[in-house]
Simulated assay, not measured.
Amino acid sequence: MKALWLCGITVAVAMSLAGCSDEPVGSQDEAEGFTLLQHDETTLEARYGAGGASVRMLVVETESKVVEVTYDFGAPVIGFHIDFNQGVGRFNPSGEPLDAAQSALMGPLLEGLSKAVPVEEAQRTRVEDAAMRQTSFMQIVPVGEALSPYEFVSERGWTHISCTCGNQYIGSGYYRTAGRGCGCTGGSGNGCKGRCGQGCGITSTPACVGTTAYTQDCAKHDYGLGSFSAASDDYTFASNNCSCSGVGTCY
């Protein structure tokens, strides 16, 4: 457990070092929009700023199949330690609660990332896939609530649901409309209910970003029947059971 915390501290230090450059202090932080700062086999760093709020994301594969992901808002800083060898992850928040302006940065950041990495998940590096998955997860982290660290384990498993939109069992005694499609809203919010990733609206046709995994825990969260933490392992580890038809189409 101590090793997990040390890894989180390491990422925080790496984030600070990554910000050092010959540019005038504050020049990057004041920029609006999406900026890809570094992108190679083991590191992906990007920033998004809007309306005075900004976030810097750093994803580093520190050793084989061990990835550190950090979202630095200044305050808070939210990190993930993901060990794919052990199938274990840890959510490491620090500082103040996430506010609405900071949470709103996640969608545009995800869109920027989706243009910088391959559309097909199978073609992505581990850091690219982790960046997409964890940024998708960051969209459901509660706003205005004190966040506590916790561990999530892939071996506890997840249960896929059908890709076809319809009334289906989503666990814990609940039946709800879920499955692919921008029109698969179940009368409640965005479409693509049950998807462990960004939803989609009836009138929008967003890029296929995040994962194409549809699971019971993600569906329960979409309907307010399950916690964001219960969906952590689904977002991070669940295999993609539904295909993605590409950019500009409902999924």
Rank of each mutant, 00 (worst) to 15 (best):
I170W: 03
G189R: 11
K115S: 12
P142I: 09
V25C: 09
G19N: 15
G95Q: 03
P24C: 12
T43I: 15
Q216S: 08
G112I: 00
A100S: 11
F137L: 13
H81L: 12
M132H: 02
V119S: 09
A230T: 14
H221E: 03
R133M: 03
P76I: 04
M57P: 00
S16L: 14
D40I: 06
R47T: 08
I9M: 13
Q216Y: 06
G87C: 08
Q102V: 04
F237E: 09
G224W: 06
V66I: 13
E30K: 15
E23K: 15
A31M: 13
A100I: 11
G107P: 04
K220C: 10
T203C: 10
R176I: 04
D22E: 15
F34M: 05
A146G: 08
M106Q: 03
Q198A: 10
G210P: 01
C20D: 14
N190F: 13
P97H: 04
Y235L: 02
Q28F: 13
F73Q: 01
E45W: 05
G194A: 06
H221W: 12
E145H: 11
H160K: 04
L6E: 15
F137P: 02
S21M: 08
C165L: 02
T70N: 11
R90W: 11
F237D: 07
S229G: 06
L6F: 11
T159G: 08
N167F: 01
L225Q: 06
T135H: 02
V153T: 14
G246T: 03
G19M: 14
P149W: 05
E63W: 09
Q216W: 04
A101G: 03
S229N: 09
G189T: 04
G8F: 01
D234Y: 07
G197S: 15
A213C: 05
C20H: 14
E23F: 12
V88N: 05
E96M: 12
G186F: 06
H39F: 09
P149H: 01
A213P: 03
G181T: 05
D83E: 11
W158N: 05
G199L: 01
T205Y: 11
G183L: 09
T236P: 00
A207P: 03
D217P: 04
E155G: 14
G33M: 04
G52M: 08
E96T: 14
E145A: 13
P93M: 06
V247R: 10
G49V: 06
E63R: 15
Q28N: 14
E120A: 14
M15Y: 03
L105R: 07
L110Q: 01
S245C: 12
Y223W: 01
G246S: 04
L105H: 01
V143N: 03
C182L: 05
A116E: 11
S148C: 09
E151P: 00
D129Q: 12
A231H: 07
E111R: 10
E111V: 09
Y175Q: 12
S21L: 06
D40W: 00
A18Q: 12
G201W: 10
G191M: 05
T135R: 00
E45G: 11
K115H: 12
C218K: 02
A46C: 13
V141F: 06
R56K: 14
G186D: 07
G95E: 02
E155D: 15
V153D: 13
D129K: 08
